[in-house]
Simulated scan of single mutants.
Amino acid sequence: MQNSLEIFLQRATQTLDRLEPMLPLQRQPVDWAHHLAARWVGSPQGGHLRPIQVRSKLKLDDLLGVERQRDQLLVNTRQFLQGLPCNHALMWGARGTGKSSLVRAILSEHAGQGLRLIEVDRNDLAELPLIVESLGGLTQKFIVFCDDLSFEPGEGDYRLLKSILDGSLEQAPDNVVLYATSNRRHLLPEYQSDNQNWQRGETGELHPSEAVEDKIALSDRFGLWLSFYAFSQDHYLDVVSHWISHYAAPLKMGWQRDETFEKEAIRWAQARGNRNGRCAEQFARHWVGRQALSLLPQTP
């Protein structure tokens, strides 16, 4: 009898050990009074929000050359904070031109008014209804932010997002809005053959124009479109100068914008094939750090 009981307990323990990873974990809710942002972490046991320590001190004035986009998104966000009608926003265009930086800067400058941000990976968009449900009843206002949003041919997730934007998210509490960034205006790749083949009757589809419309319908769910473009050379150099001053000021280091300096900044951009805000800040870090290092006492 004792042996049978021991065997039963042993098997029960083994069964519980196998089931434990499948059970939902008990996690403490995010303290939004002390955290400005969180990231949704998906898992088979049920996703959860993980707090993010926001260290960025980016300001709206740091974003040069995108004043039109900045002002439009800022007005939309202020409407949102005041409980007025507002739109979900899609920021699309060239990489490194300030799309996600604009969202971070708005969070930094309006966190005192109760603005909070939740980052959601594209692969976790199916869990948006759960995220929205967890935010209902809270006093803060939440931007649900998806960075680098895009879909490939054959993926069905974009149709799910369409239904979310037109369905559950539209009916979400007034304290939730969706902001997304993408390098693609319509979030899906578009091909010349989309027009050519169906005009020649090669696709076999009875209503091929509807397939093309389906591809561009997703971005239509966003009421506010903001486009970002590659920098001109003058714009790029102005941004470089801004970040040089930003990083040189705390070091009390003087500098001069001359022809030699500008040529070096241009060569830096050419070597990377990019002329944008990200590249400009990276060069500023490199240049200021190198100049400051040369002023330090040389160790033997």
Rank of each mutant, 00 (worst) to 15 (best):
Q2Y: 11
N3M: 05
S4G: 13
L9E: 12
L9A: 14
A12P: 00
D17Y: 12
E20P: 02
P24H: 00
R27E: 14
A33E: 13
A37H: 07
W40N: 01
G46D: 03
G47W: 05
P51I: 11
Q53R: 15
L60G: 02
E67S: 11
E67Y: 10
L74S: 08
R78G: 06
Q79H: 14
Q82A: 15
G83M: 00
G93V: 07
G96T: 06
S100C: 06
S101R: 08
R104H: 14
A105I: 06
A105V: 04
S108H: 15
S108T: 06
E109R: 09
A111Q: 12
A111N: 10
R116E: 04
R116T: 02
R122T: 01
E127V: 03
I131K: 00
E133W: 01
S134N: 07
L135W: 02
F142Q: 01
S150P: 08
R159W: 09
L160K: 10
K162F: 02
I164Q: 03
G167P: 07
V177A: 01
L178E: 00
T181W: 04
Y191R: 12
N195P: 03
Q199M: 14
T203Q: 08
L206T: 11
L206M: 13
P208W: 09
A211G: 13
A211W: 07
V212H: 10
S219N: 06
S227N: 11
F228M: 02
H246K: 13
L251R: 15
M253C: 08
W255Q: 04
Q256V: 15
Q256W: 01
R257C: 10
E259Q: 12
K263A: 09
E264A: 13
I266K: 01
R267V: 06
Q270S: 13
Q270P: 01
A271V: 10
R278E: 09
F283M: 07
R285N: 14
H286C: 07
R290H: 11
L293E: 06
T299C: 09
